[in-house]
């Protein structure tokens, strides 16, 4: 019995070792071929959608996917991997959007310059918010972050006029000057490529954190805080770092959003957006790397297909969310993956 236990412990140690080592040289984990293929496909994709009769719409969905993909991956890192129940991610997204939007509107700077102040402001706000929040746990974090989102929404509806715009939020924000560069039709292509670059950088950075010793520390903090502390992981510092790190990319996505749409409304911070993003993470796969991306893809496309039955969609989404939490707590994507592997294994 004892031998068995020590053996399993050894194998556990071996497994952890195996996961840790390659992260010292992260690119060695990355197999080049799929990445190159994915990049090539995504480079060609807009030209392919151009051939379709509803190609513009597909392109729009792709950009949306990249945008929310960044936010969702970050949130997954915070919530799924390290177990901080932050509900303020949409607010941080909005902080990025508002900062960049206000700078272009009030100071007349180019969106390409202002874009960088969004993420910086979001990181700053996240650290300030994290200082009191991250010392607390569980339900307290939920409340403080929800409260922050409510406060910021309040500020953007009732604040000074250059922020609130009389309750409508920011309108007529200068867009990226793509239309002047290449003319109306092809401008969307450039937005697509910019979003792709953002998404690729964010995904790489998050992937890097995910499979690194730091990522391991986060998982340890989630699963057993006492053990993590005893191994020298400082919960507060690590969480604060993660909070700021994720806020940077979230704010970045926000800044892109505002210069893409040319407007942003405080309504984005209503609970609906948060729930939609949460559904992406939960249905895709809580705490896994590819799950949230898959969930984001599905839940970006699905609503557009189900436009006609929009109201039933939300009802259904709620029930599916509850059912997934009960019957497939790790999410549908890992379940599907395991099922596919099983099928393949049976064949060979």
């Amino acid at each position: 019995m004892i031998q068995e236990e020590s053996f399993s412990r050894q194998s556990m140690a071996a497994r952890i070792e195996e996961r840790l080592k390659p992260s010292a040289v992260p690119w060695s984990r990355l197999s080049v071929v799929p990445v190159v293929i994915a990049l090539l496909v995504s480079l060609v994709l807009p030209w392919a959608t151009d051939l379709l009769p509803f190609g513009k719409f597909v392109l729009h969905l792709l950009i949306l996917f990249f945008l929310w993909g960044i936010v969702v991956q970050g949130w997954n890192l915070i919530m799924g991997v390290s177990g901080i129940f932050s509900f303020a991610q949409v607010a941080l997204f909005a902080v990025g959007a508002w900062t960049s939007g206000v700078i272009t509107q009030q100071l007349g700077w180019s969106p390409f310059v202002a874009m960088w102040f969004g993420p910086i402001a979001a990181t700053f706000v996240a650290v300030i918010l994290g200082l009191p929040t991250l010392r607390l746990r569980g339900a307290y974090v939920v409340l403080l972050t929800l409260g922050f989102q409510e406060l910021f929404r309040n500020f953007t509806t009732q604040g000074p006029n250059f922020v609130a715009g009389g309750g409508y939020g920011l309108r007529y924000v200068p867009k990226f000057p793509f239309e002047e560069w290449v003319g109306g039709d092809k401008a969307q292509f450039l937005y697509y490529y910019l979003a792709l670059v953002f998404f690729a950088i964010a995904t790489f950075a998050i992937w890097r954190i995910f499979y690194s010793p730091i990522g391991m520390a986060f998982r340890a903090l989630r699963d057993s805080e006492v053990y993590a502390i005893s191994r020298g992981v400082s919960p507060f510092r690590y969480k604060l770092f993660l909070f700021g790190f994720v806020a940077f990319f979230t704010g970045w996505a926000g800044a892109f959003y505002v210069h893409w749409y040319g407007a942003i409304s405080p309504a984005i911070m209503l609970f609906g957006t948060t729930i939609n993003l949460l559904a992406m993470i939960v249905i895709g796969g809580w705490g896994s790397f590819w799950g949230p991306i898959a969930g984001c893809a599905v839940l970006t496309v699905l609503p557009e297909i189900m436009r006609a039955v929009e109201q039933y969609r939300i009802l259904l989404l709620g029930i599916v969310l509850a059912l997934v939490a009960i019957f497939a707590p790790e999410g549908l994507f890992p379940l599907l993956l395991r099922w596919v592997r099983k099928m393949l294994g049976r064949q060979t």
């Binding site: 949460l278 009802l315 709620g318 599916v320 969310l321 939490a325 009960i326 707590p329």
Partner: peptide, 29 residues
């Protein structure tokens, strides 16, 4: 169904969100 199982805090939170969403939407309908 998830009472007393490992992922209770996360699970119950999400069940709450999901059920709340479904209730809200049924009321709207």
């Amino acid at each position: 169904r998830i009472l007393g199982k490992p992922g209770w805090d996360v699970g119950s939170l999400i069940v709450g969100v999901g059920v709340g969403m479904a209730l809200d939407q049924s009321i709207l309908l």
